[in-house]
Design a protein around this nucleic acid. Structure first.
Length: 506
RNA sequence: GGGUCGCUAGCUCAGCGGUAGAGCAUUCGGCUUUUAACCGACUGGUCCUGAGUUCGAAUCUCAGGCGACCCA
């Protein structure tokens, strides 16, 4: 089927027959390559150092010239060159006269090998391990992509992320940064007394957000279940239970479209703090994200897709009404009903969707059309219409609005927070309105979660709640244009493809 | 859901109606200071799939598949 694979299989068999198993049990490196490079930075060109080192890595390049060969191997820390001399191998192991021929003919790019040797910096200045012994650790049956061009096919990069990671070191850096981001956020929260508590992914009723869930089924209970679309309602139950600071950082599932900003499963952190309101949560958001950015990027200023972004607190805080008025000249406080608002929007050249059936929903429309993408620097957009925010507390002084903010950075919604609605009667009324919308055909409208309402009747203290999209934050901190660049294995439609055979080796 | 673009050797790509091509990788030969090593020789194809137009299709048309980007 594939000559390249067949050739490598044959080499694996040859190695086996020579007493060099193609799949080793292990290896004990004395150093990672980066540590070696650093420790011997003082070694002059053409000089040798009689230390014994052991390094292991994947063979990235091979250059064989007669009785001398240069390989580059790379471990996770980076590359190092191997200086492989026939005479050196022979002197170290006279009983293995073919060691040089074997390493140059049976080792291919992509193989994992381990070597022992001393150090030598070549005349051209490349620190190298002067090899005295080598072992095959893993024989690769598939070739690596082009060593110069790498993997350009975006589809293949996502489908075979392992290849992408091998040939594109900056992709590995993206996932390192993402890991540091998550870890920094957890540490920041843990240090301030927030408790991470895991809530159910499988739920009989998905709530806490306007989104369609994935449906699944529990066989033993013969129970239809959905995957969670938010962690909100369970974390609030924990606040009712007496935990004053809780959070959960984890996977959320929403059955909706895929784009450069949406993946059906994504990661969020939701944070709840008792006795706090949305102003407190703005302070918390600034401090948390600035600290995480500082830890991941070494600075609170960064560049995203060519735009300088400054995450140094404090950030701009402005109401949605003000932003819309600045952008369009329309003051939504003056509209008595939907038709007035709709006429004004049309006069201003904005689209008026049928589904936006109230002044408040039209305000959000105007915001999305005229403002959202222009909010490049971090901006807290405050005070949303109550219609779009069934879980947020009514505004303390502005009728028809709620105490809610969303954080926008580079034109993207990155966080969402409320002074939480803790009045059980108000909450019931809001959810019942949602239920009506749902019955009228809106599949994203929320349902009435009776147990949640019961919890509120038991009593939730005044609480500030916050949700942050980790993927979008990771995009920002890694300068990645697509959410798929920060998700190791993004969802793709399955590809009908023939897999290679399963021939055993040896 | 709509639009635009892409799919050719393991990888990166050219070819755009007249014999299926290049570089790298692979294979064979040479080479003790290379680092996109070099020199020589060879090998490697369901041109995404199907139908159509044509004397002749990788190339033109239609349908489908997968993907990218933009819009909703």
């Amino acid at each position: 089927m594939s000559d390249l694979r067949e050739t490598r299989l044959e080499k694996a068999r040859t190695l086996e027959s020579l007493g060099r198993p193609p799949y080793a049990l292990g290896f004990a490196p004395s150093h990672r390559t980066a540590a070696l490079q650093q420790a011997h930075a003082d070694l002059a060109n053409g000089e040798e150092r009689a230390v014994v080192v052991a390094v292991a890595g994947r063979v990235m390049t091979r250059r064989v010239m007669g009785k001398l060969a240069f390989f580059t191997i790379a471990d996770e820390s980076g590359p190092i060159q191997l200086f492989i001399e026939k005479a050196t191998l022979l002197a170290a192991h006279p009983e293995e006269p073919d060691a040089f021929a074997q390493i140059t003919s049976l080792v291919d790019g992509g193989d994992w090998i381990g070597v022992h040797g001393s150090l030598r910096r070549t005349d051209r200045g490349e620190l190298s391990v002067k090899v005295t012994d080598w072992v095959m650790l893993t024989k690769a049956l598939q070739p690596l992509p082009d060593k110069w061009h790498g993997l350009a096919d975006v589809e293949k990069r996502y489908r075979q992320r392992y290849l992408d990671l091998i040939v594109s070191p900056h992709i590995r850096e993206t996932f390192r940064r993402r890991a540091r981001l998550v870890s920094a956020m957890r540490r920041w929260l843990d240090d301030r007394g927030f408790l991470e508590i895991e809530t159910p992914v499988l739920q009989t009723e998905a709530g806490g957000a306007d989104a369609r869930p994935f449906a699944t089924h529990h066989n033993a209970l013969d129970l239809p279940l959905t995957l969670r679309i938010a962690t909100e309602l369970h974390l609030k139950r924990l606040v009712v239970g007496g935990f004053e600071r809780v959070y959960e950082l984890g996977r959320i599932f929403r059955n909706e479209g895929i784009s450069t900003r949406h993946n059906p499963e994504f990661t969020s952190v939701e944070i709840y703090q008792a006795f706090a309101d949305y102003h407190t949560m703005m302070d918390l958001t600034e401090q948390l994200l600035a600290a995480a950015c500082l830890e991941v990027c070494g600075d609170t200023r960064l560049t995203y897709q060519g735009t300088a972004i400054d995450l140094t607190p404090p950030w701009r805080r402005v109401t949605m009404h003000e932003l819309v008025e600045q952008a369009t000249g329309l003051d939504f406080n003056t509209f008595a009903d939907r038709s007035q608002a709709a006429a004004a929007m049309e006069a201003a050249g904005l689209a008026v969707p049928e589904a936006a059936d109230s002044v408040g929903r039209l305000l959000v429309e105007a915001f999305e059309q005229a403002v959202e993408t222009s909010l490049e620097q971090p901006t807290f957009v405050m005070d949303y219409p109550v219609e779009n925010s069934p879980l947020a507390r009514a505004h303390r002084s502005k009728p028809g609005l709620v105490e809610r903010f969303e954080l926008f950075i580079v034109g993207r919604e990155t966080a969402n927070a409320f002074s939480e609605l803790i009045d059980p009667l108000d909450q019931r009324a809001r959810l019942e309105l949602q239920q009506l919308r749902r019955q009228a055909g809106d599949p994203e409208a929320q349902t009435v979660d009776e147990d949640f309402l019961h919890a509120l009747e038991v009593g939730m203290p005044p609480t500030g709640g916050l949700g942050i999209g980790i993927d979008r934050l990771a995009m920002l901190l890694t300068d990645s244009p697509s959410i798929r660049d920060v998700i190791a294995f993004p969802l793709l439609r399955p590809e009908a493809r023939e897999r290679v055979g399963t021939d055993a080796v040896g």
